[in-house]
Write a protein that binds this DNA or RNA. Structure first.
Lengths: 140, 140
DNA sequence: ACCGTACCTTACGTTAACGTAAGGGTCAAT
DNA sequence: ATTGACCCTTACGTTAACGTAAGGTACGGT
């Protein structure tokens, strides 16, 4: 069931649960942390497209080993209107720090991938040897 | 203080704590999970080079958002001697699965980096504009 | 009128990954 | 002989991130 409200597509909590494979409890928890800010129709939460995007960002951050407060700081970078220059500079500096943090994480992952690939090649060779041995035994 | 025991460099718990910036409790916890297996001199733990490598792998995995049991499975791939071919194939399949998991994580990180970089460029432009405005005001 | 479904709040429970305190051993140096 | 550094075990405490149960609301369909 697709819902639209004054021009924007909106989502119920269970729709988002199904899309991202999380429980409602999880999304409500994220709301209580300020990670999403659904509107209300009576009691019910009404999630906007923006909420949906933020939810996706939260889940991505979570899978990368950030905790929810770090994630909050990071995604809050995207929607702020810093009036003071000083504030703007601090924000920019913080963002750059986060970028380099992410880059070193990526480097760590790349290392891990390379190591596992080397391991895989080694084990693949072993496996081939074993299989040939077995077929030799089969001929006798 | 550098210690060597029958040909191999060994480490005390505090040496590893300092090197990797973790507490002794953390390392002992990893031992209780089987992530490191230090020898003993009396009561004291004696860590080998292998333990040190494994500790490094554990910390890397942790920073990438894996839990300790996932990490255990992954680093145990490196030192096993699978006698049966079936077991070897299962192990290889598991390793390949982990590789693709890591690859999708890397892709997610790359996305996050790109988004933040775009954000940074945008904010940088804003900042320049503000600074020019300020210097204009200064001239008057 | 009744039911089922979707949704809500409140609040206690759980798990992983340690933190932290208490009490004790060993050994070299003063 | 005592002190301080380093290390140990045992065991309860803590935090984040939800899980889960209990009880209630709203509403479209039969």
């Amino acid at each position: 069931m697709i819902c639209v409200e004054n021009g924007g597509r909106v989502y119920s909590i269970t729709q988002l649960c199904q899309e991202f494979d999380v429980t409602a409890r999880t999304i409500r928890h994220y709301e209580s942390c300020g990670l999403v800010e659904p509107a209300r129709q009576g009691q019910r939460r009404v999630f906007s497209e923006r909420d949906r995007v933020r939810l996706r960002l939260v889940l991505r951050g979570r899978s990368l080993g950030f905790n929810l407060s770090e994630i909050a700081e990071m995604i809050d970078l995207y929607d702020l209107d810093p009036s003071e220059v000083a504030q703007l500079e601090r924000t920019l500096a913080y963002g750059r720090q986060k970028i380099s943090q992410l880059e070193s994480k990526r480097a760590a992952i790349s290392e891990a991938i390379e190591e596992l690939r080397a391991w895989e090649r080694k084990l693949g060779v072993q496996l081939q040897r074993r299989l040939r041995q077995q077929s030799e035994e089969g001929k006798r």
